[in-house]
Simulated assay, not measured.
Amino acid sequence: MIKALLLLIVLVNGLYAVRFVLDFLKHRKEAWAEPGSNFLLALWGALCFFLSTFGISDFALSTVLYRARKLVSDKKLPGTLNTQCAIPVAVMALAYISSITVEPKTLILLIVAQMAGAYIGPRFVVRLPAATIRTFMGIGLCLAAAFILAGKFNLVPSGGDATGLEGGKLILAVVLLALYGALNNVGIGSYAPTMATVYALGVNPAVAFPIMMGACTFSVPMGAMEFVRLGEYGRKITFFSSLFGIVGVLAAVYIVKSLNLSMLQWVVAAVVLYAGATMLFERAKGSEAA
């Protein structure tokens, strides 16, 4: 099953890569004329996806930089965010799934659950106030980070080192991952909640990485191909991010694989706390503006 999954990742993202390359070559003059220093874009591609490999949102980071430097219009920003991350995320998924031991049934079911949530969820999620969801998610993630830190200081039982889930825990994880996939549609990333869930259910925190990347690597290229077809994306940014993002991903994957469980728990706590605090800060900013 794992080999079949890896092959499917290569096929889906390979199709996207071919379409992007053909479009880039067709419009190469316009692409090189787009704003942005080649050195800056190369450096940013490596740094952005180095951080993204640890679960820090490349969408959020890139939005801040691209708008501040006026590298791409707001109209083309959503397309650029999707097209720039397709190849780096595929490399993340291939590296983590092939190098981190995960029980195949758990991996496949959780990837499918998150993809299903992302597909079916919008018709339900869009009816809910995004600000309210963000508030509850922010509080939940901060509490999850506190739980992880309490375990590190031996105040509560710490997370386990299992490579898969069974029975009620697996069913709960499937339901939650489907919910996280749905919440992606209101701008709430699934990386940090997935980390917190996997940890809380007693699984090795490293297992969260192939699950997170595996789900994203199927959903992202499908949307990215549509943006390429429409030409609604930054070609130059996507070129440099696709190329140098791989360098950042491989560097980060090596670090994650070489960290022991204790150090990885600190990384998970930091990412989850960052995500929760960011959501609460955005909610407070929105209330202030209103």
Rank of each mutant, 00 (worst) to 15 (best):
A150N: 02
V156E: 03
Y254V: 07
L65F: 10
L47T: 14
M263V: 14
F239R: 01
Y199H: 06
V267W: 07
A290Q: 14
S62E: 14
I255G: 03
L65M: 05
E103Y: 04
R67W: 05
C85D: 14
K236T: 05
I211R: 02
L8D: 10
E103V: 00
F218M: 01
V247D: 03
L172C: 04
Q114G: 15
R229S: 13
M279F: 10
K76T: 02
S57D: 06
L43M: 14
I97Y: 00
N260Q: 11
L25C: 12
L183Q: 03
E103G: 02
A206M: 12
T132S: 12
V156A: 00
L5T: 07
F240Y: 14
F153I: 11
L183M: 06
M222P: 00
L170C: 02
M212T: 13
C216Y: 09
A146T: 00
R69C: 07
R127K: 04
K29I: 15
D161N: 06
S219C: 07
I148E: 00
R28Y: 12
Y16H: 06
L43P: 09
S99K: 08
A60F: 04
A289D: 14
I56S: 06
L259T: 15
A46K: 10
A17K: 03
I255R: 02
L250E: 15
P205S: 06
A215L: 11
C85I: 04
V207C: 03
L61E: 13
E282P: 01
E226L: 11
A206D: 08
L94E: 08
M213P: 02
L201I: 08
D58M: 11
T217V: 08
G121R: 03
F281M: 15
L7V: 00
A270R: 12
F49A: 09
V271W: 11
T278L: 15
I87N: 10
V10T: 14
M222L: 14
F227A: 11
T217L: 07
R134I: 01
M225D: 04
A116I: 01
R283I: 04
L230E: 13
V256H: 02
L15M: 12
M115N: 08
L7C: 10
F124P: 03
T83K: 10
V91H: 15
Y180C: 02
K3C: 07
M263Y: 14
M115V: 13
F239V: 05
G223C: 09
I97G: 00
D161T: 09
V174E: 00
F136W: 08
V64G: 00
V268W: 11
I9W: 12
L22F: 10
W32Y: 11
L172M: 06
L8G: 04
P221C: 03
F218Q: 04
I120M: 10
T135L: 14
N82K: 09
A284N: 05
T106H: 01
T53V: 09
I111S: 05
P157T: 08
T132G: 13
L6P: 10
F59N: 10
P221D: 05
T83P: 05
A173D: 05
W266F: 15
C216V: 00
P129E: 06
Q114A: 15
L7G: 12
F240E: 06
F54Q: 06
V249G: 03
F54K: 02
L264P: 13
